[in-house]
Write a protein that binds this DNA or RNA. Structure first.
Length: 981
RNA sequence: GCCGACUUAGCUCAGUGGUAGAGCACUCGCUUCACACGCGAUAGGCCACAAGUUCGAAUCUUGUAGUCGGCACCA
């Protein structure tokens, strides 16, 4: 079989995915071993509106690598995927489309029609990211794909909402909330980002004080005469002011008090007095509250309880009127006064300032740095607004999550520092969560109101009607925050929905009872594993808790914590054991990628340029949890790696006649080795023993790396094993044997030229096949493409758990490391040979001897080493490009020789007429110098009695040995230098 | 303001209480029959700075500087 000269990823990437998917290879049911342990991952659902970005690609790579690895190890494996409905984003997108295509607003067509539009949009465009996931090669079980708005997940939302309400953990209340005037909905704290305001100003406004007789003036108005007409009537002629500082003058229209610190001597005589609020002619009290810091601003604060969270609290404490002066689009309403009604908040601000100036009540304006809350999505400045919303009390669930962390250190974060702390700190300070959203796209709040405004929360209108005793009910207009449904994802996707309404009357309202009943009832059902939409528990029983959640830093608060809380609360246990927090992919300048900076890198472009497998390797090859700057060069190096694998396979296939992969050897145990070496073959060569040892060590280390989520470590190990060990040394070592240039075997032994090379071909194919399996979780397409072409894999499923599946590497056994095949003797012998070859090559390069030139290499070494070199003479000759080896106890060479020392041997290459004595001396002296530097350091340590006495014996011994070795090598090199004189 | 992370070869990054590592780039030499997306051989770092703990610190502690995050914000 002849392969193309270079690897073209496109072919492999189109060849296999649909076969895997159609064959059901991704579904856990492919595993027929009823005893198999399970492994499960649920994807943190991306937005239905989203398309793939680098963060996804990284996250997906890690999840898929783990999944494929575990699946090959025989675990019953589920990688569950889906998207969330992304309430605001989706609604905005469809609203824009509606406007563009039909010039209508959602209100024009009504809630029902609009919701239908969104579904249409979802069905038409919502699959973008899932298509991209297929391109990435993700081994997700598409038959279990989930969507937060689908029936079973919606039922789960209903169940959770109703139960939390029944337990008084969900309540409706009027609070200051984060209001986005553009999206016209409330937002949770997590959807709000504090950002520096472009130009912050602090405005000092003067409010005239009424009833000031008998009191000291606070701030005499120097120009009091000009505006005295308005004020004098109220103040009886003598105008005194209190000056407040504000960044938002327009809110003064909603002021209902001025507050000062009770201990502030400048003001405490004013407490209890009244201020005339300019522009409104409203009389408002001066109150005392500790919240006010005397040192800041003027020490007097205007209080707008309906438009500032802190002011609201003061308002609560002092029973102040909470006057809302804005509409939901941040224009001023009628309560702001006729002059301002309908003005945008910023226009109103200007006008207020103007008027104050006209009235001479504007003391000054200062520049002022401040940060303002912005809508994470549309960047609009958030308006704190008094509004009636639904909230979840988090205290109880928070405590459960914190207890779990304290008692079980669960979930385990990778890396633990600093994420564990971020998680617990956030939980500790957790406040109520605003869950209602003023949208039409989402799970509508299951609350109904009767004519009197009484609220009935139930799973259905019928149930609510039964509670209310009337059919005359209207449902709450709002929907739930998308994250409410996402928080349930780890179990709602596994079939939990408790769709049955609980008994309405007594007994079952207790949380524990309800859970027990639901659990028992559902567990007894024996439905097909993933009958979509139906309520079944078998997936939940099998796969919950999931093994690991892979996600980004910002998601710890958004999800990890909420999923944990909901999981503990509703399933009675954590949703996942481990949480991998991956790093952020930055652009090549180390900047965060963002739309505004337009520095994003599209993973699909990278796939196109370098291939999916190379991209996956580049992503997995970055340390877990650490941010890294994206470099095309890095992917390029893995593109090259893919090509290397391709070509190594190509070479093996070009020389595979008569041989097959030994599929019987599930691992490379001694028995397996014997099977493929056969009786007619001599003992395994050094190179064979060595590569098998290296292979086993690599498998062992890769397993360990993956178990501890050190993906980059696994990538390094695989890269090094395949390229350096397998290609650079093993292939080169056995090349002649494989190609068949050595003597034919006698007929009695299978005979002929081919017979002589078949065992070597079998060995290399078998090792190559093991390597491909090891690489498969990282590079699924390339390895499948090549594996399919290897002779002997056609009947080759190696994992009996998958016996009814077709031919695929993804269901082959992941190599199992065998300690007995780790051969330290082979490794050290091979090191000696490699060092010898490298030194000779070095002489050639340093002496400028052309590659064509052949020379004799003299070697002096101990007996054991002599045997090693003699045994591997043909390979040494070839790789060192030497003509002849003369191996003995001593070197007997002419003066005109280049020399070198290794750990085990002395080397000389006679170069009569070719050698430049000065250059050779320089070369040797260079080596001596380096050794001396090391020796000095060693001697310094060894002559330190503290070190010798206190350091571990082993360490001292190592250093002594190394020092002795250096002394010996230096002596030899010095003699060599002398010999050149 | 509080908290955290990072600072290692030209670049991007690993690493670890006991002789500094990789990939890429650089230099030199190769159309060696799998691969120039390659082969071979070099070169390159007082591991940010300072102090401490230790026989020994790039690694642990503290401080300083710079970079980047997160959180909280006083009108």
């Amino acid at each position: 079989m002849e392969l193309a000269k270079a690897y073209d990823p496109k072919e492999a990437e189109t060849n296999h995915y649909s076969r895997w998917e159609d064959g059901g290879y991704f579904a856990p049911e492919i595993n027929e071993n009823t005893e198999a342990e399970t492994f499960s991952i649920v994807i943190p659902p991306p937005n239905v509106t989203g398309s793939l970005h680098m963060g996804h690609a990284l996250q997906h790579t890690l999840m898929d690598t783990l999944t494929r690895w575990k699946r090959m190890q025989g675990y019953k494996t589920l990688f569950l995927v889906g998207v969330d409905h992304a309430g605001i984003s989706t609604q905005l997108m469809v609203t824009r489309q509606l406007k563009k295509e039909e010039h209508k607003t959602p209100q024009d067509i009504g809630r029902k029609a609009f919701t239908e539009k969104v579904w249409e949009w979802k069905n038409k465009y919502g699959g973008e990211i899932t298509r991209q996931m297929r391109k990435e090669g993700l081994s997700v079980d598409w038959s279990r794909e989930r969507f937060t708005m689908e029936e079973s997940l919606s039922k789960a939302v209903l169940s959770v909402f109703v139960r939390l309400y029944e337990e008084d953990l969900i309540y409706r209340g009027t609070r200051i909330v984060n209001w986005c005037p553009k999206d016209k909905t409330v937002l949770s704290d997590l959807e709000v980002k504090e950002e520096k305001a472009k130009e912050g100003k602090l405005y000092y406004l003067k409010y005239p004080v009424l009833k000031s007789s008998g009191l000291e003036s606070v701030a005499k108005d120097e120009q009091g005469t000009r505006n005295s007409e308005l004020l004098s009537t109220a103040t009886g002629g003598s105008v005194t002011y209190v000056t407040v500082a504000t960044t938002r003058p327009e809110t003064m229209l909603g002021d209902t008090a001025v507050a000062v610190n009770p201990d502030d001597e400048r003001y405490n005589h004013l407490i209890g007095n009244t201020v005339l609020l300019p522009l409104t002619n409203r009389k408002i009290p001066v109150i005392a509250d500790d919240y006010v810091e005397s040192a800041f601003g003027t020490g007097a604060v205007k209080i707008t309880p309906a438009h500032d969270p802190n002011d609201w609290e003061i308002g609560e404490r002092h029973n102040l009127v909470k006057l809302v002066v804005m509409n939901d689009d941040a224009t001023m309403n009628e309560a702001a006064g006729a002059d301002f009604t309908g003005l945008d908040r910023y226009a109103a601000r200007e006008k207020v300032v103007e008027k104050f100036e006209e009235l001479g009540l504007l003391e000054k304006i200062e520049d002022y740095d401040l940060t303002l809350p912005h809508c994470e999505r549309c960047k609009t400045v958030i308006e704190p607004l008094l509004s009636e919303q639904w909230f979840v009390k988090m205290d109880e669930m928070r405590d459960l999550a914190l207890k779990q962390m304290r008692d079980e250190n669960s979930p385990r974060f990778f890396p633990e520092i600093p994420h564990k702390k971020v998680y617990t700190n956030w939980l500790e300070n957790l406040k109520s969560w605003t869950i209602s959203r003023q949208l039409w796209w989402g799970h509508r709040i299951p609350a109904w109101y009767d004519a009197e405004g009484n609220v009935y929360v139930a799973r259905s209108k019928e149930e609510a009607a039964a509670k209310a005793g009337t059919q005359n009910l209207t449902q709450d207009e709002d929907v739930l925050d998308t994250w409410f449904s996402s928080a349930l994802w780890p179990f709602s996707t596994l079939g939990w929905s408790t769709s049955e309404p609980p008994a309405l009357a007594g007994g079952l309202t207790q949380a524990e009872d309800l859970r027990q009943t639901e659990w028992d009832k559902q567990s007894s059902k024996n439905q097909p594993a993933h009958a979509g939409g139906s309520d079944n528990r078998s997936d939940l029983d099998t796969f919950y808790p999931t093994d690991v959640l892979v996600t980004g830093r910002d998601i710890i608060r958004l999800w990890v914590s909420r999923m944990v809380m909901m999981g503990i609360k509703f399933i009675g246990g954590k949703p996942f054991d481990d949480v991998i927090i991956h790093g952020t992919v930055l652009d090549k300048n180390g900047q965060r990628m963002s739309k505004t900076k337009n520095n994003g890198i599209d993973p699909l472009d990278v796939f196109e340029k370098f291939g999916v497998d190379a991209t996956r390797m580049a992503l997995a090859g970055s340390a877990t949890g650490v941010d890294f700057a994206w470099r095309d060069e890095k992917v390029e190096s893995f593109r090259n790696f893919a090509n290397k694998i391709w070509n190594a396979t190509r070479f093996c296939l070009m020389n595979s006649e008569g041989a097959t992969v030994n599929t019987d050897s599930i691992n490379l145990s001694k028995e397996g080795l014997h099977r493929y070496l056969g009786d007619s073959v001599p003992l395994p060569s050094l190179a064979d023993r060595w590569i098998i040892s290296r292979l086993n060590k690599t498998v062992k280390s890769v397993n360990f790396a993956l178990e501890t989520y050190q993906f980059h470590e696994a990538v390094q190990l695989l890269y090094h094993f395949f390229w350096d060990d397998f290609c650079d040394w093993y292939i080169e070592f056995v090349k002649d044997e494989i190609v068949g240039t050595q003597a034919p075997l006698p007929a009695a032994n299978g005979g002929g030229r081919l017979g002589a090379c078949v065992p070597a071909r079998t060995r290399i194919l078998t090792i190559l096949e093991q390597a491909l399996r090891m690489l498969h979780p990282f590079m699924p397409f390339l390895t499948e493409e090549l594996w399919q072409k290897l002779p002997g894999t056609s009947n080759g499923l190696h994992n009996t758990a998958y016996r009814s599946a077709g031919k695929t590497i993804m269901l082959a056994d992941f190599p199992k490391p065998d300690e007995t095949m780790i051969d330290e003797a082979a490794e050290s012998e091979m090191s000696a040979v490699i060092e010898l070859i490298t030194k000779v090559r070095n002489i050639r390069a340093e002496m400028n001897i052309t590659p064509v030139e052949r020379f004799t290499v003299h070697i002096a070494a101990d007996n054991a080493t002599q045997v090693v070199f003699a045994t591997n003479e043909p390979q040494i000759l070839k790789l060192a490009r030497a003509e002849k080896l003369i191996i003995g106890d001593d070197l007997e060479v002419p003066m005109a020789s280049a020399k070198a020392v290794t750990a085990n041997a002395e080397i000389a290459v006679p170069l009569e007429g070719l050698i430049d004595f000065d250059k050779e001396r320089e070369r040797l002296n260079g080596q001596i110098f380096k050794l001396n530097v090391e020796l000095e350091r060693l001697n310094a340590q060894l002559s330190n009695s503290d070190f010798v006495n206190k350091a571990p014996e082993e360490k001292v011994k190592d250093l002594r040995e190394r020092a002795a070795e250096i002394v010996q090598q230096t002596n030899t090199l010095n003699q060599n230098v002398e010999a050149l004189r």
